[in-house]
Computed example of a mutant assay.
Amino acid sequence: MIDIRNKYYIRVLAIVSLAVMLTLPACGNREALGDYPAANANNCLPDVSLIDQHGAAVSLASLKGKPVLIDFIYTSCASTCPLLTAKMAAVAHKLGPALGADVTIVSISLDPEHDTPAALADYAKSHDADARGWIFLTGPPAKIDQVLALFNLRRTRESNGSITHSIAAFLLGPDGHQIRQYNALDVSPEAVADDINRAGNKG
């Protein structure tokens, strides 16, 4: 004779087990790792000239021809920006000699009112980010805001002088259009490096 209570417990156990399985991240789910499809089709490398950490003018359009990994930071940021730069530095180490030769990393200042080229150069040196092929850019605030708008981003200065901003990073293809976007604090350096290698092979 079948015990009805046992059948009930078995059914409950099966339901609980299914619920647990559904809440676990799927193996290979890139979005669970902070790696997402591109969000817009804008040309994110327009003919806009900014100033690098060495004081030289750099047109964003001149960076086309190979993948570009781009993020937004500012030098007086003491919270998320050092973490973002540390993640980009880990990606740079994964790329090795390909950085500069096959891909460019670009970090654009969110505080152009204070981030001079010298300040960006000091920031790069103190955050293991002064590698060949990694460019830090500043420029007139209106141009920075113009570039941010292409990524559907904005910067907001708080009363204490800090800047509220996104923690996103973006991988652009050789044509300047987005391929992937990242939660830069969550994504693994390996995932970004793999995306860059695929983008380079397509280019």
Rank of each mutant, 00 (worst) to 15 (best):
I2C: 01
D3I: 03
R5K: 13
R5T: 14
Y9E: 02
R11Y: 06
V12H: 02
A14P: 00
I15R: 03
S17I: 13
A19H: 03
T23K: 10
L24Y: 15
L24G: 11
G28R: 09
A32N: 11
D35R: 08
C44A: 09
C44L: 08
D47P: 03
D52V: 02
Q53A: 14
H54C: 02
H54I: 01
G55N: 11
A56Y: 11
A57M: 11
L63Q: 12
K64C: 07
K64G: 03
G65W: 12
V68Y: 01
I70M: 13
D71Y: 11
Y74H: 04
C77P: 07
P82T: 14
P82Y: 06
A90M: 14
H93D: 13
H93F: 11
L95E: 11
G96R: 07
P97I: 09
L99S: 03
A101V: 09
I105K: 02
L110Y: 10
P112F: 00
P112I: 08
H114N: 11
L120E: 10
Y123W: 09
Y123L: 00
A124R: 04
S126T: 10
D128S: 04
A129P: 00
R132E: 13
I135R: 07
I135G: 09
G139I: 05
A142M: 10
K143Q: 10
V147M: 05
T156Y: 02
E158N: 13
E158F: 04
S159M: 03
S159K: 15
G161Q: 04
T164P: 00
I167M: 00
A168G: 12
A169C: 02
L171M: 06
L172A: 01
P174A: 12
P174I: 02
G176Q: 12
G176P: 01
R180S: 05
R180A: 05
Q181F: 00
Y182I: 06
N183L: 01
A184N: 15
V187E: 08
S188T: 15
S188I: 07
V192M: 15
K202E: 10
G203Q: 04
